[in-house]
Design a binder for these strands. Structure first.
Lengths: 226, 226
DNA sequence: GCTCCGCTGTGACTTTGGTCATGGTGCCGG
DNA sequence: CCGGCACCATGACCAAAGTCACAGCGGAGC
């Protein structure tokens, strides 16, 4: 247990609003927390379920999705290590806002609701950190709403590629299947494939063995603006 | 000035996370705040501008919108008296997330950024209140994203009518123009008009001189489920 | 009363996106 | 080497939603 706890105490250093805690607080939090694993594809929690606490992604990746009755899926956001999930239900007492599904084998830390609430009451900077996290979520959701309602698919794809592929020159490009991209853009595989072909024909993007590479960032931005 | 301040002190009692403050705190906050008015249709602030503080709606109504390059408009949410606006930029230091436009003649209270930050650092319950407000925003945005991406127009309209018209039996119905509804649903007037006709033909809804009245709530829910 | 104006409803047409079906490619395991 | 599998591309078709155009209605103001 002490060994596990020691690892957990370290784990917090990578997490936004928990990173700045004094070691004693981190140890206290770690003592009240538990590690959980999820295999790729596994549902960590489902939309609407009551939430008992906060999840911290230790490693792996998680997508947060809503599903329609017809089985179509919209990804609200995807998070990697260091991210925290489910602060909304933790603080407002409602159910989970979306379902969390592991994109890869993932390890998570579960921090019980009360532990986090105590901490926020004791330390205003933690509460301010939670606020900053939620503010970021609101911003990204607003951008997604604008995309869905005001941009056509090609523009949406351009925005997606620009934000998803780091502007670092050349860079690696993006390794995602058509279905995955479609779920992010709120559509299905085929239209995405067509939109990608369009961008490819315009010379803005290239496809090299399952990897999407951006060729012309400015060109993509132009398309994104409409 | 003392008279104005006295009114402001009272004004805070209707505002979520400022209502619980002791009178001394409210007076201090009021002293640092200013009243501002906006005529119907006037823009209170525009998306992207740097934000100097929080707005509290004293009376009137405000819509928060994003606009496309082609002039189409998507309403993210609309708020009436007692609501607070712009906590996102206040706490993360970025620009406004959306433009705020008065739907009626409106009076607002402007609370400078620093005043609110001080308060949160001094009083954890205020910070928790801000968190609750943002959590609500995240929830409603998630619902909007699901609507836009997973529901067709008729279903979206059904959801909108159900949430916008209080379930109180009979009730008043809704007084909004087709354009206004369209902006809330992320589309334009004509499809809304057609969707309304469809609901009318199904006997779920009725139109009486500019007023939309719900006839069959269960029927609407069925359509909303799509 | 009449006219102007803002709003509504609807038809005809176009565009976009979703569905279905088919064939191709690259990779893994037998 | 071959078969299966996952993924991709594309054509044909269909449905939903956006655009354009027009007519009708009701209230405000002269």
């Amino acid at each position: 247990m002490t060994k596990v706890t020691a690892e957990l105490v370290r784990a917090f250093t990578g997490v936004g609003y928990l990173a700045g805690l004094p070691p004693a607080e981190r140890a206290g939090l770690a003592a009240r927390s538990a590690v959980r694993t999820a295999a790729r594809g596994q549902t960590i929690y489902a939309e609407g379920e009551p939430a008992a606490g906060l999840f911290v992604v230790l490693d792996g990746r998680v997508k947060l999705v809503r599903r329609s009755a017809q089985g179509r899926e919209q990804v609200l956001h995807a998070e990697g290590s260091g991210a925290t999930l489910a602060e909304v239900p933790v603080f407002d007492g409602g159910g989970y806002v979306a379902s969390a599904v592991a994109l890869e084998d993932t390890r998570l830390l579960f921090v019980p609701r009360e532990a986090l609430l105590d901490l926020c009451r004791r330390r205003p900077d933690v509460a301010l950190g939670v606020i900053a996290t939620l503010a970021g979520r609101v911003r990204r959701f607003a951008a997604l709403i604008e995309d869905l309602s005001l941009r056509d698919l090609t523009a949406r794809l351009a925005v997606f590629l620009l934000t998803e592929i780091p502007p670092g020159r050349d860079g690696g490009g993006l390794r995602m299947t058509g279905d995955e991209i479609a779920a992010r853009l709120g559509t299905v595989r085929e239209p995405v494939s067509r939109a990608l072909s369009r961008l490819r024909r315009l010379g803005l993007v290239e496809r090299a063995r399952g990897l999407i590479v951006v060729r012309d960032r400015r060109g993509l931005s132009a398309i994104a603006r409409h």
